[in-house]
Amino acid sequence: MAMLANTGAGSRSTSPRTIVALVVGVAVLLALMVTAFALPAARSAPHHVPVGVVAADGSAQASAQVQKLSGSLEGFEVTRYGSVADARSAIEHREVYGAVVVSRDAVTSLVATAASPTVAAMIPTIGDRLAAATGESARVVDVRSFPDRDPKGAGLAAGALPLALGGWIAAMVIMLLVHSPGLRLAAAAGVAVVGGVVLIATLRFVIGTIDDGFWLPTLVAALGIAATAMMVLGLRELLGGAGLGVAAILLIFLGNPLSGLASAPEMLPTPWGLIGQLLPPGATGSLLRDVAFFDGHGALRPLTVLVCWLVAGLALYGAGVWRNRRRHEVDEDEVRIGHRPGVDEVTSPA
């Protein structure tokens, strides 16, 4: 009865100002969520997208067309290559997204759908316009494509949110069910490994986004989940509830919409594409793309980003555990002797 009375008193003491603050806060939160998720897509356009151009046969006409094309592609960073082989090598090494090859009788668009279906769809329109202006034929060659079961790479594009939420949810469940700091680390490692296996198995055997290799992409996914989970655990251990808010902003509000997995980082407004690649969802997606489709070319930067996040999360977690060591010692003692705080006190006789 006393508890009910106290609860009722607490309810009656809620002021209109508190209710107004709650309503306004939720409204602002919804507005920020819509902005974070929708604005990058609404403002999607080429921003310094690297592409190549080639005068294949060295003719004066082809060279003149390439020169003209190089100065007319707004939103693209154009690099001239001396041969088709050089352009293909640049695509395979993740230096450019594609290339337009001009010869005496044809305009060929070299694309890599696996690098970005969005950019791969844009490059042939450039080739088509040039072919129409010169009266030449136009054709498209896909240097790196997704498997036939998932030709647009939908599984990879949809992976940013599961990566962000997977690490977040895993960290929350670990904090709820596991009380020992050491066991929390072991649980996070286990979740990362098992989650990586399940994620890549789903992409390969269910969706069909990946058709070659399993264990190396699994290591990438496990690293991404581990980096995400450890950052959440570290921020929560060191900063408490405020740490969860910081993690939500970094991983969900920013990391998911700015990952660039649905298009390309260069399709997002500057500097948001770069920022997205410095967050775990974007770095994990880029590393997985590089490893699964481009033989690891371009993997150094996203790998470095994920390792830094993992190390930072471990450092924050270690600092938090050290600061809260007395509380952890009490918690472990209570778990060891079967004491249930807040329950034994109520049920024990006066």
Rank of each mutant, 00 (worst) to 15 (best):
R17N: 13
F146G: 03
R149D: 07
M122W: 07
A187I: 13
P269L: 13
G182A: 15
G273C: 02
S83P: 11
Q277F: 05
S11R: 12
S13D: 09
L279S: 03
Q277W: 12
G213K: 13
G75E: 08
D150S: 07
A138P: 06
I225A: 10
L261A: 03
V191A: 12
G320T: 05
A222W: 11
A45C: 09
S348G: 10
P265V: 06
M172R: 15
G208I: 13
W309D: 00
G255R: 04
G208H: 09
W272D: 01
G10K: 03
V198Y: 00
A121W: 02
T113W: 05
K152Q: 14
G298Q: 03
D290V: 00
H339T: 08
G159V: 12
I275Q: 01
T228H: 04
G190A: 01
I91Y: 02
G75H: 06
A319R: 06
L244P: 01
G260M: 10
P50F: 09
R88T: 07
A171E: 08
G75R: 03
G234W: 06
G195C: 06
A138I: 11
A31G: 10
V100D: 03
G71W: 08
T202W: 10
A157Q: 15
E266V: 01
D57V: 15
V305D: 00
A85Q: 13
T134H: 08
D331M: 14
D128H: 12
F76Y: 15
V173K: 13
A87Q: 10
V173P: 07
L268M: 08
A27D: 07
S145V: 03
A222K: 02
P181W: 00
V335H: 14
A189N: 08
L238I: 06
D86Q: 10
A132K: 15
A189D: 01
A315T: 15
S72A: 13
S259N: 04
Q277R: 08
D148T: 15
